[in-house]
Each structure stands twice: as structure tokens, then as C-alpha cells.
Design a protein around this nucleic acid. Structure first.
Lengths: 254, 254
DNA sequence: ACAGTGCACATTGTACACAACCCGATGCGC
DNA sequence: GCGCATCGGGTTGTGTACAATGTGCACTGT
């Protein structure tokens, strides 16, 4: 049971989520990816000691990773009561999307002004990766890559505070998508991403912003954020109680 | 080294910077205030152990406070090389102000829609406090209260991500003002704040946004590029907190 | 004298031990 | 049976020891 993957020392490249070298980043990336791929349900408790054993590091490292995840809004840190995977309410989701519209509009306008040819090439490459992930059926990777596309676009805007904010918004958006998306469709059509790159490359600010706003509309429309989906919300909130690992207790004890 | 330490326990009201109860917040507030009042010059190294001795807490607490300050952009955390007070370049300042214009416009529009009478009353109270601080010549408190005004306004917008972003932007703006403002004038005229509240109370979105944008222009125009200097000595900077008794570990008076 | 190297010190990074706290269980009294 | 107080297990909060890293200085060889 206490199977700990080898004490990730200085392996230059850990798995597909292993980004740069430091331990915090590795733990952070793994937990983040697990949340996006819904291997960690919203509301799941994230025990420091358990995570420490799993990743072969001490609670200190876990704590930093959780703190960072909490800063980005994908984890909720309750004092003296541990961390849980965030389960954004419909209202919180609306606020995130409102903020994203604001930021994406500004980023698009700035990217039209400042994006270099190299950055545009990188963006096209990311769309390719994203398409591949979805075609492979790797939904979690697709969501993550789609988010990274928007983050890369923010970098083209050349405004550090906006990039930081966008990172937080994209993380929360990914969590919301993973939680609320009506399942059958890809959440972020890469065609729209391609068109957006074309408009930016053509330095057509008006078109680019319009495309981005429509893109936001599409993402929004694919979510069940309407009032009548309160049942879905409740189900998400109590999903950690309803998981029937063992047969025999059908109802939740109140 | 066992020194008589008086660990800052749960004293309800600390000094002028001592906000809510937890130790991190107290340390955070003190360092933040010291930076705003230019008792800590940009670039000053913030040694964990030195700060720990000054505040009578362990490096753990200091580290958390520094991490929080770093997340808000007021402190720069260099791996394996310690923390220093951030020294925003002119370019970084420009980016912060661009982002603030964006956010303040949105916040103003939302505040016009959502601000309650109670919130407006609180805002007026904050303007009064701000005016008092400047009339007392307490420039650091004035800058801080002016920032808190804008933060309170963000709360009226009822959008959690925007509030969080605004907190970061206001912190960095305060640092920029403390660093670059041409010295003798009040940096943030409270008259403009009052007019802004009036426009919001009248639910005049166009006027409110115009006032806010002019307010941003005024702040912007008051900055220059001179180099300011302040003390590098941590003990000197926080001397007003130290109980000058025995050698050893002096703890701060709260 | 200067540049490069190696050592010693100082500071940060990490792990761990203990304290504080929360939550659930058990038992008692009503 | 029900409610409440008390206790115990387990998790988080904090302090501290040790390891790893960076920095500055002295020393040496050219």
C-alpha cells in the first residue's frame, strides 16, 4: 500500500507532467494534472503525509505545492483542517469567466501588437499538440494543453502581471471545465485557436478580439452553469461521499 | 543560542501594522509596511534568520511571509540565494500600471452596479483615514490606506479573482510609488477618491470610469525616475519594534 | 601582480520531532 | 433512547537540526 515512487531526486525528466527540475514543481504538476484529469474529484482531501509518502518527499515540499495550488485556486486550504480539491460553485465559475473575458480581450489586443513570428510558430505547435491529445482521447492532456495555449498567448502580450493572473485564471478554468463540461464534445475547439493565430499574425486586432470573445462564448456555452443544473452542482459537491468503493452503504449518513 | 524570547502570542491588537491574529500576517504586515515607508530599500537582502530573530519567530514563519510577499510581487525570491526587496524597473512599473487601468475600469463598472450603501460608507471612512494620515505626515500609512481604498472598491465589485489580482497590483503599485514618486506631494489625492465615491453612489458608470481613469493618469504623472535610498540594516529598520534590553534574541514589542 | 582554484563560512533547502488542534468515539447521566 | 462531556487517534502547525548550495577570501602558480 505504501508504494512510493522512487524518491524523485534529480531525474532530469520525470513523467509527462514532470516539467522543470525542482521537487515542488514536480509535485505541483502531478497533483495539478491529476485534478484536471479528474483522478482527484472535487472535495477530495489532500493529506500532506499521504502525498509525502506517495511522492517520496517530506511534508515540507507537499505543503509548498499545496500552497501554490491554493494560490491558483484549484485547491482550498482550510486552516487546521487540511487541503481539499476545490469545487468551484456556479457563482465562482461565473466570476472566473467574467475575469477571463476581461483579460483575454486585453491579451489579444496586446498580442496583436507584440507577438513575434517565433511565438506564433510556437502557438501553432501547441495547437497541433492539443489536437493530437484530443484525437488520442487524452482529455486531461487536451484540457491542459488548451490552457497552456492561452497562457502562451498571454506571454506574447508581454505584461508580467497579466501573465500571472492569466495563469491563475486558466488553472481555475481548467478545473471548472473538468467539473462542469457536458461530456460529449471537446471543450476547446482547436480550429478557433488556429483562426485566432491567423488573425493575430495578420495584425487584425478587431477580428482577433472578436474571435477570442466568440471563443469564450463557446467555452461558456458548453458548460452546465445554468440555474437548473443545481443537481449537478450538488452531485459534484458530494461526489466524494457517494463514491461506492465498497458495496453495502448506499446512502450518506447525515 | 537560547535567548529569552517573548513569542508574539495572541495579542489582539498589535501596533499600527499589526492586523489580524496569525503570526504570518503580523510579520507580513510589518515587512510590507517597512517597504512602503522606504525603511527597506529596494534590493535589500531579507535574511530569514535575521528576520526570525527580530520578530521572535522561527524561519518557518518568515519563509511563509516572504513567500506571500513574493507572490504579490513586493519581494523577489531567488532560489538558494535568499529574498530581496523587489526593485521594479521602469518597464515593470509600466506593465503594472497598464494592468491596473484594465482592472480598475472593470472594477469601477462593477462597483457602480453592486456597491451597497454600507460599502460606500466604509469607503468614505477610508478616505477620511487616508486624509488624516497625510495630514499627520505619515506618508507610509497614507500610501497603504490609499491602496486599501482601491482594494475595498474591488470588494464592492464582487468578483473574487479580480479582488485577488487587484491586491497584487495595489501592492506593487505602492512599492512603485514609494520608489519613484517625486517626494513632496501626496500621491493619491483623496478628493479624487471622494468624487469617485459620489459617482458610484449616483450609479453613473460613465462618470465613475472617467474619474478613475483620470485618477490613474494623475498617479502615473507624478512618478519620476529618481533613485531613492534607504537603510540596508534590518535591525535599524525595525529598531522601533525592538526592546533594547540584553543581547540575545530581542523580540518585537506588539 | 594577477588570475584561477580551493577552502571556509554563511545562508538557504529539506526532513523530522514535537506541540496544538480538530474530529470522531465512547461512556455517562438524564 | 438521546444529549452532552470527555477522551483518544490522527492530522496539521511550528520549531529546529542537518544537508546542500552559494559566496567570499586566501593562497598559489605563472
Amino acid at each position: 500500500m505504501n508504494e512510493q515512487l522512487q524518491p524523485l531526486k534529480k531525474q532530469p525528466r520525470a513523467g509527462k507532467a514532470g516539467r522543470s527540475g525542482t521537487q515542488d514543481d514536480i509535485v505541483y504538476a502531478h497533483i495539478f494534472e491529476a485534478i484536471l484529469e479528474q483522478r482527484l474529484a472535487p472535495g477530495t482531501k489532500l493529506s500532506e503525509e499521504a502525498l509525502g509518502e506517495i511522492f517520496g518527499v517530506s511534508r515540507t515540499i507537499i505543503r509548498r505545492a499545496l500552497s501554490r495550488l491554493a494560490h491558483e485556486g484549484v485547491v482550498l486550504l482550510r486552516p487546521n483542517r487540511g487541503a481539499v480539491v476545490a469545487s468551484p460553485s456556479v457563482e465562482e465559475a461565473r466570476q472566473v469567466f467574467m475575469a477571463r473575458r476581461l483579460v483575454e480581450r486585453a491579451i489579444t489586443e496586446l498580442a496583436v501588437q507584440h507577438a513575434t513570428a517565433e511565438q506564433l510558430a510556437e502557438l501553432r505547435q501547441m495547437v497541433n499538440d492539443e489536437r493530437d491529445s484530443f484525437s488520442r482521447g487524452d482529455r486531461g492532456a487536451g484540457i491542459r494543453l488548451s490552457g497552456e495555449f492561452h497562457l502562451k498567448l498571454a506571454e506574447a502580450a508581454k505584461n508580467a502581471p497579466l501573465i500571472s493572473f492569466q495563469r491563475s485564471l486558466v488553472s481555475q478554468t481548467s478545473l471548472i471545465i473538468a467539473q462542469y463540461e457536458s461530456g460529449n464534445r471537446s471543450h476547446c475547439s482547436y480550429d478557433e485557436h488556429t483562426q485566432l493565430i491567423d488573425a493575430i499574425e495578420a495584425r487584425d486586432a478587431v477580428l482577433a478580439v472578436n474571435l477570442m470573445m466568440h471563443h469564450m462564448d463557446h467555452i461558456d456555452s458548453k458548460l452546465n452553469l445554468d440555474e437548473e443544473s443545481a443537481s449537478d452542482d450538488l452531485h459534484a459537491v458530494f461526489s466524494h461521499l457517494l463514491q461506492t468503493k465498497k458495496p453495502g452503504r448506499p446512502s450518506v449518513k447525515l
